[in-house]
Design a protein around this nucleic acid. Structure first.
Length: 579
RNA sequence: CCGCCCGUGGCGAAGCUGGAUAUCGCAGCAGAUUCCGAUUCUGAAGGCCGGGGGUUCGAAUCCCUCCGGGCGGGCCA
């Protein structure tokens, strides 16, 4: 089912078209193709509820001054059967349409009737989409970037769900490959250092220097003593990995749970190697003649596939410096690369029936995007169905200064540290304040602030305030009730109409956020909703006004409460009745 | 060198599938509560939308170029 705003817009679109055709038939406009035009909500309320640029857009094709066209359209306009009651011509030739009060009444009824499902739509037609996000390396603790990725990915998934997609949340556990080798090596060195002191080997530059590695080595030593000092290096590493990896993964799961992120699946990369899926994609590429051997390694002829997804210059070419390269899939030493595993992983996703896969990656992976999309084409899938949301990195700020985070120094700010200091509500809301592509600063001081400067409190306060009003009136024996049209039409103060207008656009806003993969839009939306409610509250009284108006305003409160509740619940943020 | 992202009042941001007088918050100034929660609201002040060029009826928005900041260009992931 379509929703009211959409209904209003499309009916208006039809009316304007019909009016132009009528004007042509009547000879008021020259016979020409109808221009493409848009309908939008003007910034200035004096310009009506909807504005149309058809007259200006048609100036060229009709060879007529915009205002004349506008007059011709206006004269032939039939608004009966729509929510609009009049049209004005303004400025250079804008057609400004004004909604009849019945529209606002129906918006309120719509919200009341849909309740918790208000905002949901069938835009996505139940299409199966996967959002893979965070997928942090299990060799160490999760950091601030993962905190942003977690909020972003989870909220994106929530928005897609509300927009009618069938959404699956997934975490890829990179429990295989090079970084696991490095993990084993690092653990082994730390373990030996516990027993050998200065005689122990040193930790190589490019291994993991974090404190967590030392902690794991100690934990092993506490439980099993020096048993691993007398075995081969290989055996020692694999024992330590077998000990450390499950602990790290369990910690990631605990952290994500605390962060209120629930995955449908934690997918293990190892299964791709064990099941032969990695070998399988290489075989597929080999059958297509896309594999060759060089320098003892196995290469995939990636360049022509990657090229399709790279930005071309004016001449439609890619500069030499940036020319796509072929990729190694199996190293000289016989181990598959991340590229090989990732191709297999994405094939696995599509094989599971997802028609669209969305990956949330750090911006430092952007070079990988064109390669992965190209690889999908190469194995006979469709790279266009893989969407990557690149997320810029986060700077943690405290006292106006950047708090450095570095895995190397071992003094990294971890996700679990953050969640000890900052309420989950605040973290989830603040990390979803900006579009993924924008660099962001996370202000620790603001996040723990319990006042209106902190947007999540501002929004929660609006909800608590509405609940308080409802309580106060209930104490007087007044409860929300069904209102007549006449009663609801008493809501005509500017603050009331602005509030309803904004509430009417909620479903649209969710769809827009889903289309743009930008859940932060909903945070902005709900902040504005809270602001408009506070403005209404300050200029219109609910309690103590005459019965019909009181009932209507109570309805308005219930509707605002419903939407704030729906947004906060969707984003897994608590929605207090009092604070 | 090449590529990706970003640049909007003192600070932080919204607006970016082109529309009318560029929006909001913070800091600072002036105000509002006998009354539903002041964690709120009202008003004034503050702008060559990084610079320049182009596209057109119209550009913060699209294109080119330059400047400034972040990130990347592995048989790392």
């Amino acid at each position: 089912m379509s929703f009211l705003v959409k209904q209003a817009t499309s009916s208006l679109q039809g009316c304007v078209k019909a009016a132009m055709e009528k004007a042509i038939a009547a000879g008021q406009l020259p016979n020409a193709d109808l221009p493409a035009f848009t309908l939008e909500v003007p910034a200035d309320r004096a310009h009506g509820d909807w504005a149309c640029n058809a007259a200006m857009a048609g100036a060229r094709t009709f060879h007529t001054a915009p205002r004349k066209i506008a007059e011709a359209i206006c004269e032939n306009l039939d608004l009966s059967g729509t929510y609009f009651d009049r049209c004005e011509i303004a400025g250079p030739g804008f057609l400004n349409f004004f909604l009849a009060p019945q529209f606002w009444v129906d918006v309120l009824r719509d919200i009341l009737q849909k309740g918790e499902s208000y905002g949901r739509s069938d835009y996505g037609q139940g299409e199966k989409v996967m959002v893979e996000f965070v997928s942090a390396n299990p060799t160490g603790p999760m950091h601030m970037g993962n905190a942003r990725g977690g909020a972003l990915g989870d909220c994106l998934a929530a928005v897609l769900d509300a927009a009618g997609y069938n959404v699956w949340r997934e975490f890829l556990i990179n429990d295989a490959g090079n970084q696991i080798q490095k993990f084993g090596l690092s653990l082994s060195v730390r373990y030996q250092q516990l027993f050998l002191g200065d005689n122990a080997p040193e930790l190589p530059e490019d291994s993991y220097h974090g404190e967590d590695i030392l902690d794991l080595a100690k934990a092993y030593a506490d439980e099993h003593g020096d048993a691993l000092m007398n075995v081969s290096e290989e055996e020692r590493r694999s024992a330590l990995v077998a000990f450390g990896l499950p602990r790290n993964i369990a910690k990631m799961k605990r952290d994500m749970a605390k962060y209120r992120v629930e995955y449908d699946e934690w997918f293990s990369e190892t299964t791709l190697h064990e099941s032969g899926a990695v070998r399988n994609v290489i075989d597929i590429l080999r059958e297509k003649g896309l594999i060759y051997e060089k320098d003892g390694a196995t290469w995939y002829k990636a360049s022509s596939f990657t090229e399709k997804y790279m930005k071309k210059d004016k001449k439609g070419e890619i500069s030499e410096e940036n020319a796509p390269k072929d990729e190694v899939l199996i190293r000289q030493n016989g181990t598959p690369t991340y590229m090989a595993a990732d191709i297999a992983y994405h094939k696995n996703k599509f094989d599971r029936g997802f028609s669209r896969c969305i990956d949330v990656w750090g911006a430092d992976h952007h070079g990988h995007v064109a390669r992965m999309k190209g690889a999908m084409d190469a194995i006979g899938l469709d790279g266009e169905k893989l969407d990557v949301v690149l997320m810029q990195l986060v700077k943690l700020m405290q006292n106006g200064e950047e708090v450095r985070m570095s895995k190397r120094t071992g003094k990294a700010i971890q996700l679990s540290d953050l969640l000890d200091e900052v309420p989950v509500d605040a973290a989830r809301f603040l990390f979803n304040m900006k579009d993924a592509g924008t660099q962001m600063k996370f202000d620790l001081d603001l996040a723990v602030q319990q006042d209106a400067e902190n947007p999540v409190y501002y929004v929660q306060y609006a909800h608590a305030r509405i609940c308080s009003i409802l309580r106060a009136l209930k104490a007087d024996g007044i409860e929300p009730r069904e209102c007549t049209n006449e009663e609801l039409m008493l809501l005509k103060e500017p603050e009331e109409v602005e509030l309803i207008r904004h509430m009417a656009s909620y479903t649209d806003e969710i769809i827009a956020a889903a289309k743009a993969y930008d859940p932060a839009r909903i945070n902005h939306y709900v902040i504005t909703l809270a602001t408009l409610f506070h403005k209404f509250y300050n200029s219109c009284r609910v309690k103590g006004v005459e019965d019909g108006l009181c009932a209507a305003r109570l309805t308005l409160c219930v509707c605002a409460k419903t939407i704030i509740h729906n947004v906060l619940t969707m984003f897994k943020i608590s929605c207090p009745d009092s604070m």
